[in-house]
Amino acid sequence: MTTLPDTMPGLGRGFVALLRRDLLLAWRRPGDVLNPLVFFAIVATLFPLALGPETDLLRTIGPGVVWVAALLAALLSLNGLFLADHEDGSLEQLLLSAQPLPLLVLAKTCAHWLLSGLPLVVISPLIGLSYDLPADGLLALPATLLPGTASLSLVGATGAALTVGLSRGNALLGLLVLPLAMPILIFGARTVSLAAAGDTMAGGVYFLGAYCMLALTLAPFATAAALRISNE
């Protein structure tokens, strides 16, 4: 095949079209976007209520709590990543498309991250503030959550693709994704703790960035393979 037929849209257009479609769908049902965000805030509220309002304690646990809450919120929203498309049959259309599936998967993952990951990154300093984190810690939260939530979306998409047609996929997804997400949690939470204690956060942010790049190159292919297998 030397020349592409004129009717075939370019690779970029397929990506953008799918991304726009997912964002538009979410725009029409804002509840789906708000739910993970509210969930994130509620989980972060649980800990002071359960452990007591001592400022010293909250300052120590703050980074870990925000990160665990972000992990759980990401997990909550991942379940729906392919579910609606699977139920109304548009997923099969994607699989049949002439566009490379990893690219389409990447578009869906991007949309998922923009809708569920990015809002968490934006409000995370507020949560950090309520845990009385110092300024360095408040800065480290979005700095680590930005590559961290992106990695979570990418790795989680593989898990979501593996469990998409299963009746008990919901509980299974956590079992598959959480162990894989532990390096992200470890580096994210510890880096914020270190930054709050006055240490440099460069090392941890570099690691998360490198992890994100690795996930960006490998995860879409794994997710595409998993989607094909789930829909055989």
């Binding site: 790795v155 593989t158 593996l162 598959l176 162990p179 894989l180 794994a222 393979a225 998993a226 297998i229």
Partner: peptide, 10 residues
């Protein structure tokens, strides 16, 4: 096949 993908990702 699905579990094989998971094993490789792991």
């Amino acid at each position: 096949r699905a579990s094989a993908v998971l094993a490789l990702v792991g």
